[in-house]
């Protein structure tokens, strides 16, 4: 990026040898205008290359096969991700455990007040999550819930923000959450055990579908619990990679 910037300012200073298509041809008369145009151009180039400013490294899923496929080697930070399907929570808790292993800051889970049985500490502990490092915030209405998730993402104080919105988000709401995640450099994960997509197209960096799979019971070894995971969409991933896994979990 710095190469592009240097090049453009160089051309701008040299008196307009450099041409810009949309502004028409010719030598710039006004230095101010020239500079403004140069800035706009820098912006345009930068936008192509811009990546969300991430505070931590990418959030690794902990499954080598999955991480190998993902463009960042994990879930991009400073963006929103979705986990759908009947095992969406299990996958989310699995990601939460990985996150708390690698980040010092606590995580936040937004739950509706109405869901009294929302989270059970001993169960989380069994998945390798230290429940003491999970802040739980309860909201009374859907609007308050969105406010809460947005604030938590924006604050940058949490290593991971989990939320379970009721139903699909509108484009505006999804966009706001996405911008908040970018501003705070925080990874957001929207969880829905219903099957339908939560976020509007283009606003989430990845969408996962996690379904339960029958456990593998062998006569001698321990029970191996399984998860069927499908990567439905992922920003920056276009190839024909494997997007379907059957994974052993805790």
């Amino acid at each position: 990026m710095s190469v592009y910037r240097a090049e453009i300012f160089e051309t701008a200073r040299n008196g307009g040898a450099w041409r810009e298509g949309t502004e028409g041809d010719g030598v710039w008369a006004d230095a101010g205008l020239r500079l403004a145009t140069a800035r706009r151009h820098v912006d345009r180039i930068e936008r192509q290359f811009r990546r969300a400013p991430s505070k931590g490294s990418a959030l690794r899923t902990g499954f080598a096969a999955v991480d190998a496929v993902l463009p960042d080697g994990g879930l991009t930070c400073g963006a929103i991700h979705e986990s759908l399907g009947l095992a969406a929570r299990r996958f989310a808790v699995h990601l939460l455990a990985r996150r708390l292993e690698n980040a010092a800051a606590p995580a936040l889970w937004a739950v509706p007040v109405a869901a009294g049985h929302a989270l059970y500490g001993p169960g989380l502990a069994g998945y390798g999550v230290d429940p003491s490092r999970l802040v739980i915030a309860r909201y009374r209405s859907a609007v308050e819930g969105l406010w809460l998730i947005e604030e938590a993402l924006k604050s940058g104080a949490f290593s991971l923000v989990l939320g379970e919105p009721e139903g699909a988000l509108g484009t505006t709401a999804a966009r706001r959450l996405s911008l908040a995640a970018e501003a705070g450099g925080t990874c957001g994960l929207l969880v829905s055990e219903g099957g339908a997509a939560i976020s509007a197209p283009g606003t989430s960096a990845s969408r996962w579908r996690a379904e339960p799979a029958p456990a593998a019971i062998s006569e001698t070894g321990p029970v191996r619990r399984r998860l069927s995971l499908v990567l439905e969409r992922c920003r920056g991933l276009t190839g024909e990679e494997t997007r379907r896994w059957l994974l052993d979990t805790v």
Partner: peptide, 8 residues
């Protein structure tokens, strides 16, 4: 009281 942690 709606922002809390769990304790064993």
């Amino acid at each position: 009281d709606n922002v809390f942690r769990l304790a064993p």
